[in-house]
Design a binder for these strands. Structure first.
Lengths: 228, 228
DNA sequence: CCAAAAGTGTTGCTGGTACACCCATGG
DNA sequence: CCATGGGTGTACCAGCAACACTTTTGG
């Protein structure tokens, strides 16, 4: 078997490439939305895809996901969790590439994504209006949405979409958007307050021609807890 | 950078190696047990470890896990599910190795593991009596056990431990072993039968000096369903 | 005074938990 | 007839679902 003078990284056995891909969700205009980049390079040049890229040899997988997200979209400071690892042999036309996928959550207010490095363009897409996607990224997004729905019931992931201070109305909208159904206001408030995870800040916020809403904040910021 | 004439697989950028590792659980003597192999080769030579090995370039990750399990332990026909991907840069002393881990379940009756290829020895270990383990495999097993406990409540994973026909007493023992607590017999039977997932075979089985037990089988073999 | 979202309790139902005795069998 | 696990029903309690009106504000 021939050597390749221009390919300096050599091994006894074939090695796959490994990437991370990140599905960053937020809620915009009462719809669940995911952040996509338009690919600058082949394959799938000009096609929309999840931000992501190759794992460096000295960084762990989570660091890689955060780095790629920052490099390609400028977004930092999100909640991040490993989703699933996709590894069908032909999922990338270039070579064997195994992708460790993550999903991320953030309140849309803190985000101002800007296209960087490999991205010609960055944009939010509502989940019910996704464009054609590169690779198996549609499958990745579908799985992430499913996981998000499930964790809504038995964990505190929903707080990943909230700013530091928020109203119960805003929180309820998040739950309703992800579950795709209206919830009873009284039952929702009773349920959330019984969890004893959030507390009043003592202040309130006026946003329209109506009564101001009390502001709340999470008791243990950063932590995603399992409930029940 | 120098070429390596004896290392014929060359790339423009460094590539990590990718393995799968499998935590196969069963229930033996009313304890949750995991299948380990004693490593024949360095690193961690002579040390106990999870079965697993390098991903071939033309097989998907799940196929790799099943192949490695079969090659190293002779075990086939188990329920298999992806667990988590471990990728700290220094988790293997040889080179950067990313491991996609799986957990597997099987009734102990169908299993007769035998050491193969890379394994000097194969043995079951009760979860409360694990030996020193190679790499980060203790962490893998702990995570797998945690996942198993959680899924017991909202899925039908427990049937992965059952033979085709089983008694309600046997099924209850499985739940009790994994949860680590005794369950009320009447409530357990009521609950399981209400799920409408199993049905009587019409036959019964005698196993001791007492009344024979009705045999049941799952309505939809192979499927692991989510409940509630 | 009108529009708009905030805020607030009670009732019924359902599902989970606690609990004790008789049955079928082999030795 | 004794030991062993198999098999069965009821009563209570807690948590979830359904449901409507008053409050505060800006225009």
């Amino acid at each position: 078997m021939a050597n390749h003078p221009m390919k300096p990284f050599c091994y006894d056995y074939p090695h796959p490439a490994v990437t991370t891909d990140i599905a960053l969700f937020t809620i915009r205009e009462e719809r669940l939305a995911v952040l996509l980049i338009r690919r600058r390079a082949a394959p799938f040049q000009g096609c929309w895809a999840l931000p992501g890229g190759f794992v460096e040899m000295d960084e762990c997988l989570e660091d890689c996901a955060l780095r790629e997200l920052a490099e390609e979209t400028g977004v930092t400071g999100v909640y991040l969790e490993q989703l699933y690892t996709f590894g069908k042999p032909d999922r990338d036309p270039r070579e064997r590439i195994i992708s460790v996928t993550y999903y991320a959550l953030a309140p849309s207010e803190i985000l101002s994504p800007v296209a960087g490095s490999d991205a010609a363009e960055v944009a939010w897409f509502a989940m019910d209006a996704l464009p054609e996607l590169a690779f198996d990224h549609r499958e990745v997004i579908a799985l992430a949405q499913q996981r998000l729905r499930a964790k809504l019931d038995y964990s505190t992931v929903a707080f990943g979409f909230m700013q530091e201070e928020f109203t119960l109305g805003e929180l309820q909208k998040v739950y309703e958007t992800i579950r795709g159904e209206a919830l009873d206001k009284r039952n929702f408030r009773k349920h959330i307050l019984a969890l004893d995870l959030i507390g009043e800040t003592g202040t309130s916020r006026r946003v329209g021609n109506h009564r101001p809403a009390k502001l709340y904040r999470v008791q243990h910021p950063g932590a995603v807890l399992y409930i029940k």
